[in-house]
């Protein structure tokens, strides 16, 4: 299990090669290739239905690619998925929290799934404190507002200190105060690689090292370092009818 060779400083964190995915006959991702170094942030732009969430699910090891190769944190998917599980944090549309458990119980459950020392109690308390939920630790999820659930989901995704953070519109459902509390937790950090899906083009360009634009049919519009993409070009993936028929 232990890897004797020290990892190179700027190893590749993500690599996709001709990645395609189909649900039955419907192709939602077509021939996506990309690369990202460790510690960098990739912003994924594209209109609804462009395959962004599918791409994230594949990178999170939840979905097998129909065609093409993917490598996440040096492990080839889906063959070596078991190796990277536990190093990925996913914050998607679903909070992945049990409605009938309270905040602390939910985090404790996830801590046990990740074999965190001491049931992750300290880590959970620290995270609840930082998202401003300490006083709600005993509140059941089904009694929480959407914003509170979002904040708890952030704790859940960060609980095991993931090396790769996959964020699907992470600040949705949050009021300005919530954004202020949560955004720094999800921001760039040493050794943390991030994949960020957002409709906020300006925010994406401000945070990202590389930008991937997906057309409506799931093809790559562009995959470039952030310096080579201007906001106008980035916005075009939302307006243009791709592959006009």
């Amino acid at each position: 299990m232990s890897d004797p060779a020290p990892e190179p400083a700027d190893a590749t964190a993500l690599r996709a090669d001709g990645l395609s995915h189909a649900y039955g006959d419907r192709w939602v991702l077509r021939d996506v290739s990309l690369g990202l170094d460790e510690g960098q942030t990739l912003a994924v732009l594209g209109s609804n239905g462009a395959g962004k969430s599918t791409l994230l699910r594949i990178l999170a090891t939840l979905l097998r690619p129909t065609e093409g190769g993917v490598e996440v944190l040096g492990c080839e998917l889906p063959r070596e998925a078991w190796k990277v599980r536990g190093r990925i944090g996913l914050l998607g549309h679903q909070p992945l929290l049990y409605r009938d458990l309270d905040a602390r119980e939910n985090l404790h459950f996830h801590a046990r799934l990740f074999a965190l020392p001491g049931g992750g109690e300290e880590r959970a308390a620290e995270l609840l404190e930082r998202v401003g939920l300490s006083h709600r630790a005993s509140t059941r999820v089904d009694e929480m507002s959407a914003g509170m659930i979002r904040r708890l989901a952030v704790c859940r995704a960060l609980l095991h200190e993931p090396d790769l953070l996959i964020l699907d519109e992470p600040l949705a459902n949050l009021d300005p105060a919530g954004v202020e509390e949560v955004a720094p937790l999800l921001g760039p950090a040493p050794g943390r690689t991030r994949v960020l899906v957002t409709h906020d083009v300006d925010a994406a360009l401000a945070e990202a090292d590389r930008v991937l634009g997906l057309e409506r049919d799931g093809r790559v519009a562009f995959a470039l370092p952030v310096g080579e993409v201007d906001a106008e070009r980035a916005r075009r993936v939302y307006s243009e009818r791709a592959g006009a028929r």
């Binding site: 939840l62 599980r85 990925i88 996913l90 929290l97 049990y98 996830h110 799934l113 990740f114 074999a115």
Partner: peptide
């Protein structure tokens, strides 16, 4: 049902479990 509706299936697959 709870695993499907509340994401338990996915939570378990995201973990090294």
């Amino acid at each position: 049902v709870a695993e499907r509706e509340q994401g338990g299936f996915e939570a378990i697959r995201l973990a090294p479990a």
